[in-house]
Protein backbone atom coordinates (compact mmCIF):
# COMPACT_ATOMS: atom_id res chain seq x y z
CA UNK A 1 0.00 0.00 0.00
CA UNK A 2 1.31 3.44 -0.84
CA UNK A 3 1.20 6.60 1.16
CA UNK A 4 -1.63 7.99 -0.93
CA UNK A 5 -3.82 5.28 0.53
CA UNK A 6 -3.55 7.03 3.88
CA UNK A 7 -5.08 10.44 3.47
CA UNK A 8 -5.13 10.82 7.25
CA UNK A 9 -1.44 11.54 7.29
CA UNK A 10 -2.27 15.15 6.74
CA UNK A 11 -3.59 17.18 9.59
CA UNK A 12 -6.00 19.13 7.44
CA UNK A 13 -9.67 18.29 7.53
CA UNK A 14 -11.94 19.38 4.73
CA UNK A 15 -15.32 20.53 5.99
CA UNK A 16 -18.46 21.08 3.93
CA UNK A 17 -18.15 24.26 1.92
CA UNK A 18 -14.49 23.50 1.18
CA UNK A 19 -13.32 24.99 4.44
CA UNK A 20 -10.25 23.43 5.99
CA UNK A 21 -9.18 23.20 9.57
CA UNK A 22 -5.89 21.98 10.87
CA UNK A 23 -5.82 19.73 13.90
CA UNK A 24 -3.03 17.56 15.29
CA UNK A 25 -4.11 14.07 14.38
CA UNK A 26 -6.30 15.28 11.57
CA UNK A 27 -9.57 13.48 11.02
CA UNK A 28 -8.90 11.07 13.88
CA UNK A 29 -8.85 13.85 16.43
CA UNK A 30 -11.80 15.52 14.81
CA UNK A 31 -13.83 12.32 15.07
CA UNK A 32 -12.76 11.98 18.69
CA UNK A 33 -14.04 15.47 19.46
CA UNK A 34 -17.34 14.69 17.76
CA UNK A 35 -17.65 11.44 19.69
CA UNK A 36 -17.01 13.23 22.96
CA UNK A 37 -19.57 15.94 22.19
CA UNK A 38 -22.17 13.36 21.19
CA UNK A 39 -21.53 11.49 24.42
CA UNK A 40 -22.06 14.69 26.42
CA UNK A 41 -25.34 15.28 24.61
CA UNK A 42 -26.35 11.71 25.39
CA UNK A 43 -25.61 12.12 29.07
CA UNK A 44 -27.62 15.34 29.08
CA UNK A 45 -30.54 13.65 27.34
CA UNK A 46 -30.48 10.81 29.85
CA UNK A 47 -31.77 13.26 32.43
CA UNK A 48 -34.75 14.21 30.28
CA UNK A 49 -38.20 12.83 31.01
CA UNK A 50 -39.12 9.35 29.85
CA UNK A 51 -40.66 8.82 26.48
CA UNK A 52 -40.26 7.14 23.12
CA UNK A 53 -38.66 10.23 21.59
CA UNK A 54 -35.86 10.17 24.14
CA UNK A 55 -35.23 6.48 23.50
CA UNK A 56 -35.14 7.00 19.75
CA UNK A 57 -32.79 9.99 19.92
CA UNK A 58 -30.46 8.20 22.34
CA UNK A 59 -30.23 5.14 20.15
CA UNK A 60 -29.82 7.31 17.09
CA UNK A 61 -26.86 9.05 18.65
CA UNK A 62 -25.35 5.76 19.82
CA UNK A 63 -25.63 4.26 16.35
CA UNK A 64 -24.12 7.42 14.88
CA UNK A 65 -21.18 7.18 17.29
CA UNK A 66 -20.68 3.52 16.51
CA UNK A 67 -20.78 4.29 12.80
CA UNK A 68 -18.16 7.03 13.20
CA UNK A 69 -15.79 4.63 14.94
CA UNK A 70 -16.34 1.92 12.36
CA UNK A 71 -16.05 4.21 9.34
CA UNK A 72 -13.09 6.31 10.43
CA UNK A 73 -11.20 4.41 13.12
CA UNK A 74 -11.70 0.98 11.58
CA UNK A 75 -11.16 2.44 8.09
CA UNK A 76 -14.24 0.98 6.50
CA UNK A 77 -14.41 4.15 4.43
CA UNK A 78 -11.20 3.37 2.56
CA UNK A 79 -10.85 -0.36 2.96
CA UNK A 80 -12.16 -3.22 0.87
CA UNK A 81 -15.91 -3.34 0.32
CA UNK A 82 -16.08 -6.94 1.52
CA UNK A 83 -15.10 -5.85 5.05
CA UNK A 84 -18.22 -3.71 5.18
CA UNK A 85 -20.32 -6.70 4.16
CA UNK A 86 -18.56 -8.82 6.74
CA UNK A 87 -19.82 -6.41 9.37
CA UNK A 88 -23.22 -5.63 7.89
CA UNK A 89 -24.51 -9.15 7.33
CA UNK A 90 -24.13 -10.34 10.93
CA UNK A 91 -25.47 -6.99 12.10
CA UNK A 92 -28.60 -7.51 10.02
CA UNK A 93 -29.02 -11.09 11.27
CA UNK A 94 -28.42 -10.05 14.86
CA UNK A 95 -30.83 -7.13 14.60
CA UNK A 96 -33.55 -9.24 13.04
CA UNK A 97 -33.07 -11.97 15.62
CA UNK A 98 -33.05 -9.44 18.42
CA UNK A 99 -36.20 -7.69 17.27
CA UNK A 100 -37.89 -11.05 16.81
CA UNK A 101 -37.21 -11.87 20.44
CA UNK A 102 -38.17 -8.39 21.61
CA UNK A 103 -41.41 -8.18 19.69
CA UNK A 104 -42.69 -11.73 19.55
CA UNK A 105 -45.62 -12.19 21.88
CA UNK A 106 -44.88 -14.07 25.06
CA UNK A 107 -47.09 -17.15 25.13
CA UNK A 108 -46.92 -17.43 28.90
CA UNK A 109 -46.65 -15.05 31.82
CA UNK A 110 -44.81 -15.21 35.08
Amino acid sequence: MTDEAHPHHHDAIILPGDRRIRLPGGIYTFVFVVLALLTLIEIFLAGMPEGPARVLVLFGIAIGKAALVVIYYMHLKDDRRIFAWTLLVPLIFATLGGFFLLLSPVPYST
Binding site: G97, F100, L101, V106, P107, Y108, T110
Partner: peptide
Protein backbone atom coordinates in the same frame (compact mmCIF):
# COMPACT_ATOMS: atom_id res chain seq x y z
CA UNK B 1 -37.91 -15.09 36.09
CA UNK B 2 -36.14 -16.94 33.28
CA UNK B 3 -37.39 -17.74 29.83
CA UNK B 4 -37.34 -21.30 28.53
CA UNK B 5 -38.43 -20.29 25.06
CA UNK B 6 -35.37 -18.07 24.82
CA UNK B 7 -33.14 -21.15 24.71
CA UNK B 8 -35.29 -22.75 22.04
CA UNK B 9 -35.17 -19.63 19.90
CA UNK B 10 -31.47 -18.94 20.22
Amino acid sequence: GGDVLLWQNV
